[in-house]
Design a protein around this nucleic acid. Structure first.
Lengths: 188, 188
DNA sequence: GTCTATACTCGGATAGAC
DNA sequence: GTCTATCCGAGTATAGAC
């Protein structure tokens, strides 16, 4: 709540992102977004002339950039698969605040938002993550078809553990997912 | 779209449920709900005096009853675990329309809806499902602690495969989840 | 029990001053 | 670039006829 007099671009997008992840797209009214950022509605429109839809798009875009850098990149890097996975897991933990913050890919998946302008980004993001998990599984010695299946399981477990943690109001499922991720990807 | 002159209680709740599952709570405006049911807003208020919140509560309650009967009950029944799981999986397939319909437990999980009046029901539903999966895992020979972990994984995979299927606009992940559910629960 | 019509609030968006 | 003030439409909810 305490806000500095003038917030930067990154902080602005970060606060908007928090609102969207907490309450969803529809419930994120301009009043709420205004309060969260400390900017009046008109100021938000100065920065985002196309309104809430643009805010969501820029938030999603920035979040995917961050996610790519923090999670996808380590998975695709060179080096010991175990260590790359450990780094990705640690960054996943940060990104989802230990399971307390929802995933925008779930939040924005509703096909109903303006006819679903987010769907392409969401789909691309899922596919990038699937590809990265599959690559590291292959690097760990799995055959190609098996690698893809493990990747799909890992992504489903990530999303599902977030949903379950939220539903139970208990972050243990997400934490367990993080712990089991390496064996999930690199083999039973 | 084509609607009979007068629809029954079950059909009414079913149509409301479809809307909530497709667009979420906030985006389900009375106009949309009115169109989906063929009833005018005032008629909906006659049936649900407390408005949209009550509609959502009754929809959730009915859906959980249905889910309990179709999925939880088979899991908790007597008889061959393999067959009980097969029946539950088949009913899951129906309930989620082969992965095309989202889960209300995910849709309604936003803590922001009126201060989260759905949270207790959601939590209870998750715990009932976890318990049922754990029971059938034990019936299949798993030790208690292992059974609980398999149950948690299964629930996460269910929710996650739905999210992923929705995001990819491809129902393969959900279908694969259904196929792998028995080995997931009964052992590797 | 369903309708038409309407009241009222809130959310999205703009104008224009500073 | 941020503000106050305002407009307009959408959304929730109600009144009252049939």
């Amino acid at each position: 709540m305490a806000r500095p007099k003038s917030i930067g671009e990154d902080e602005l997008l970060s606060r908007l992102e928090n609102v969207f992840r907490e309450v969803g797209y529809e419930a994120a009214s301009l009043a709420v977004l205004s309060k969260a950022t400390g900017l009046q509605k008109a100021s938000l429109y100065h920065r985002f002339p196309r309104g809430k839809a643009q805010m969501a798009q820029e938030v999603l875009s920035a979040a995917l950039d961050c996610f790519t850098q923090q999670v996808i990149a380590p998975l695709n890097a060179a080096g010991d698969p175990e260590k790359r996975l450990a780094l990705a897991a640690s960054n996943l933990d940060q990104y989802y605040f230990g399971g307390r913050k929802a995933c925008l890919l779930n939040i924005f998946a509703s096909p109903d938002i303006d006819g679903g302008p987010f769907q392409p980004s969401i789909r691309a993001a899922f596919e990038a993550l699937l590809k990265a998990f599959a690559k590291i599984a292959r690097d760990g010695g799995a055959p190609a078809s098996e690698a893809r299946q493990r990747a799909e399981r890992a992504v489903a477990l990530l999303q599902g553990s977030l949903v379950l943690s939220r539903g139970l109001q208990n972050h243990a499922p997400f934490k367990r997912f993080l712990k089991e991720l390496p064996s999930e990807i690199l083999g039973k």
